[in-house]
């Protein structure tokens, strides 16, 4: 089992993702610089970490979506490699066209950092299989632009096809239909605003995030 964490200039959860994956799955993790033009061979999981890629000075994730490595990430995702974007990584996936919708400024126009309770609305995915039997998961959010938006037709389709994977119990940022995380139609690309990479052992307040990494790599 092998995972890759992509490092953009301004990523700041890259180490957190590496440690979270190592601690929860024992998998080896390669750090891949955004300027690289190839992914290491034999990657089972790609993670786009949180942070402020390029300072988020343009739209969040817009610059990172054009980084050289993203062509490889897209190709791998199309081949079916499990790909997760967390927080800023979710924004990058939307900007790169790998997931529908966009992340807008939070409803209250402020950054918000707090633990949130999530409903696992689909535990049939390769990322959430491990949550079976338990409907709730606790993780923290930390974002200024985590307000998920898509047109109603897209939202209807996401809900209808089981692509809404996590929902907030108490919406912290105004996300449409309380959506916290979605997957693509093929089921191998996940984007989420809450941080499983900050919830991988009990000392951190929750170990619920570890299940996500375990599921993603177990399915590989």
């Amino acid at each position: 089992m092998k995972a890759a964490v992509i490092v953009f200039p301004g990523s700041n959860c890259d180490r957190d993702c590496k440690v979270a994956i190592e601690r929860s799955t024992g998998a080896a993790v390669d750090m891949v610089w955004h300027g690289d033009t190839a992914l290491p061979a034999g990657i089972d999981l790609i993670v786009l970490p949180g942070g402020f890629s390029y300072g988020d000075y343009l739209r969040c994730g817009a610059m990172a979506a054009l980084s050289p490595i993203m062509a490889e990430v897209k190709a791998a995702a199309e081949r079916g490699v499990a790909t997760v974007g967390i927080c800023n990584g979710f924004q990058v996936l939307c900007e790169a066209g790998l997931l529908p919708g966009a992340l807008l400024r939070n409803e209250k126009l402020k950054y918000v950092c707090k633990p949130v309770e999530l409903e696992v609305t689909n535990s049939q995915t390769r990322f959430t299989a491990g949550y079976q039997g338990r409907r709730l998961a606790t993780m923290t959010v930390g974002n200024g632009e985590g307000n998920f938006f898509a047109d109603d037709a897209t939202l209807d389709r996401l809900e209808g096809e089981g692509q809404v994977v996590f929902r907030y119990r108490d919406n912290p940022n105004g996300s449409a239909r309380d959506i916290a995380g979605i997957i693509n139609a093929k089921g191998n690309v996940l984007g989420m605003m809450p941080h499983p990479d900050r919830a991988f052992e009990a000392e951190l307040g929750s170990a619920d995030g570890a299940i996500l990494f375990q599921s993603a790599l177990a399915s590989a």
Partner: peptide, 16 residues
């Protein structure tokens, strides 16, 4: 709540 208190994944106690 406007401060990221958890990045680096080593925070055990914070303002909250």
């Amino acid at each position: 709540e406007q401060y990221d208190r958890h990045v680096m994944a080593d925070t055990l106690e914070d303002s909250a």
